[in-house]
């Protein structure tokens, strides 16, 4: 799936790095707890979250993620978007709630990685 597909499936607004929309991603995770993202996520390229602070961007960067989706109509601050831009992380914002946003992506084939790293 391309980041552009995520944008369309979630009716999301692109807040930065729209030149990266053609990038391929093959897994995602949804969490408001960055602690859990850091502990349990392996090679997930996309982070869906309702948490709104700069640590979301930094956590994604630590995990080599390429796209963050803010759910529940959360809009990141200018500083957060600027930070994401510097790190080449696409930021999307959707009105959908976490459950539906994850469900739409999952049903279209964006899963989680298996233990062996395959999508």
């Amino acid at each position: 799936m391309k980041i552009r597909d995520i944008k369309e499936l979630l009716n999301a607004e692109v807040l930065c790095c729209d030149e990266e929309l053609e990038k391929e991603v093959n897994s995602a995770c949804g969490s408001d707890m960055m602690s859990d993202v850091l502990a349990y996520v392996k090679d997930q390229a996309v982070l869906l979250t309702g948490l709104l602070n700069p640590q979301v961007i930094r956590t994604a960067e630590m995990m080599d993620m390429v796209c963050i989706v803010f759910v529940r109509s959360k809009k990141p601050t200018k500083e957060m978007v600027e930070l994401a831009k510097q790190l080449d992380i696409v930021v999307l914002a959707t009105n959908l709630r976490m459950y539906e946003a994850c469900g739409r992506l999952y049903s279209k084939g964006l899963g989680t990685l298996k233990e062996n790293g395959e999508a």
Binding site: S35, A39, L51, Q55, V56
Partner: peptide
């Protein structure tokens, strides 16, 4: 701290 997305007790083990 939990409302900031941390404090799950995973830091040191991680």
């Amino acid at each position: 701290v939990r409302s900031l997305g941390f404090g799950a007790g995973m830091g040191l083990p991680n």
